[in-house]
Design a protein around this nucleic acid. Sequence first.
DNA 1: TCATGTACTTAGGAGGAGACCC
DNA 2: GGGTCTCCTCCTAAGTACATGA
Length: 756
Amino acid sequence: MSGDHSHNDSQINSGSKYSDSHKQKDKYKDKEHKHKDHKKDKDREKSKYTNSEHKDKHREKEKLKQKDGSSDKQKEKDKYKEKRKEVKLFDGESKKDRENGFASPPRIKSEPESEDFYHSPKHNKSLKRERDDEDSEFKPKKIKTENDKSEKKIKKRKQEDDEDIKPKKKTKEKKGEVGTDGKKKVKKEPEEKWKWWEEERYTDGVKWKFLEHKGPVFAPAYEPLPSNIKFYYDGKPMKLSLGAEEVGTFFAKMLDHEYTTKDIFRKNFFKDWRKEMTAEEKAKITDLNKCDFGDMHEYFKAQSEARKALSKEEKQKNKEENERILQEYGFCVMDNHKERIANFRIEPPGLFRGRGDHPKMGMLKRRIRPEDIIINCSKDSQHPKPPPGTKWKEVRHDNKVTWLVSWTENIQGAIKYIMLNPSSRIKGEKDWQKYETARRLKKCVDRLRAQYRDDWKSKEMRIRQRAVALYFIDKLALRAGNEKEEGETADTVGCCSLRVEHITLHPEKDGKEYVVEFDFLGKDSIRYYNKVPVEKRVFKNLQLFMENKQPEDDLFDRLNTTILNKHLQELMDGLTAKVFRTYNASITLQQQLKELTSPEDNVPAKILSYNRANRAVAILCNHQRAPPKTFEKSMQNLQSKIDAKKEQLSDAKRELKSAKADAKVRRDEKSKKAVECKKKAVQRVEEQLMKLEVQATDREENKQIALGTSKLNYLDPRISVAWCKKWGIPVEKIYNKTQREKFAWAIDMADEDFEF
DNA sequence: TCATGTACTTAGGAGGAGACCC
DNA sequence: GGGTCTCCTCCTAAGTACATGA
């Protein structure tokens, strides 16, 4: 690994990081409870002081405590507030001035802008964007939308747009993928691929100028259970009202799942279920333990089996129906181009499945109705129609956002969106831009590293904390760690929200000096466990940060993600904590590919090298998965295949030997040919054996590691494309069809010399 | 300055289609 | 042709980042 990210070896090879982390989540329960109790205490403390007088008194008290070396979190926050008053914080430039003009826009209310701002598809022709010649550097020529009215420009654009519809250079999809039936499939994709990356991008926060779609597909209405399927309460059959029955089925369907054994899940479910019951039901059903959903559960299982057992024709019919819905609702027209929508179906009602120890798991996710839906489209488009007898909550025309449909879910009050597929222009541009920002970081990362190392010595605590946190984000690819609302989600942390209890300092461990042991639950309650030797100054700083603090206190009490990102913006335009993850992931892939690829290797061996490089990144980013349920069995099967192949190889060798002996005696053409034939057979079997062995190694190494996340979100696809081109590896071996669609821009523009 | 809201990306798991093997 | 296994696609939760308004 190059000096660019010199610490990576320890991260990548750190076997300890993955010690059955999924199982170990439970270990956290205790800690979490402790933390919650602690927080509750703090909340109680907070609530005691509601009026300002009390607050002032409280602050005074806290100041005193501070002198005493007490380390209450509230105290730290207040302390921080005081400190902030003294320190002039960086104002930061207006986000709108930032690169590419892709700033988050001010909200446009339902009231549209001036008429001529929106364009029909016809008008849109005149809005064709110009080609950008500096693709790889992502330097868009700006379109000033205000000037679009200019007659001259309109004419020019119209001309260009015509060219767009009939491009001179046509990119054709490879035809003739073989279907399961062995027949050649006819490609349904359009033959001409739109190279949006060769065109100019919008600026000023404009995301599109024309948007038309058919709206969302709603979840199917509830189908009542057949009369012979009973729910039992306290051993007796009981007919439920429709609403109660529907919610009951949500629980019944999940009976096989561990969720339904969890206390919080059961409690939340029961509470919400009772809200759907009639007065009589409520009076009768008072204990979930007396509810028997067995019959219902069996019924749904049987239905699922029946679906699997459908005849070929019936399956085909279903497939066609799905395809019809996809064709009708799965695409939109955005600026003259048909674009695929990612999630055009509204989430069906059900029970909330929060990850980890989520306090809201089991709550009822209610059915979304048209009255909950906000439609976003252009004013002059054909607006989607709500189902008969219903109406939308709102139809708005906000072209500074990318979503088509939104609604607010009832569990966390969060907004959900329907957006475009990753292969769309709007997503692709953003993705490309993300990697360009990471490449800009590459150019100044040495300076930044030097600076944060210098900041470890700062007189100001807030600067030291910021510098150490940044070091972790850079070295360990930790997430930023936004603050979370307590009691609303599982107790997970990122870098800025680490607590004292999440690290252990070892002056010496396993023969290494200044080791920091990290142990916390990160995003999705995935455990992060790592023992990392750090520099002495970092170690000493951590000791300082932990002084006089309780385990439940914030490690970086003078820091949060807003402060950190403001600082990063000062260092580089567009820089945020997240960019470090992208940068370090991509640079690691590039370095690992250089190190691991041997020119003399054959294609499977080279792909193994690629996967190993990918794996190094996944380990760095802590992308884990639960080992597949069939893992052990499938490994056994593979091993038996390898054994059989070995046997086959020794047979083949034996046959070759005897053929050679035979040829020596006979000395005729026929026996010579036989020897050649046997030689080839040995070679063939050897290759097959090697392939199997490579497969086994790859699979074993991948047992608990998810490669997909980094491949899709962190690795600049141009690195992979360049590697494929350099070594003559078909890009299909690295990216499947969906991935190739997402990364079409990279596949088209990167040549073998591309350097991240 | 902080809390809240909004928009968007990143994430792992479930389920099923289809590839593979006998 | 049928059973098994793998991997793709979909689903939606859970993050990050930043704007806004009190």
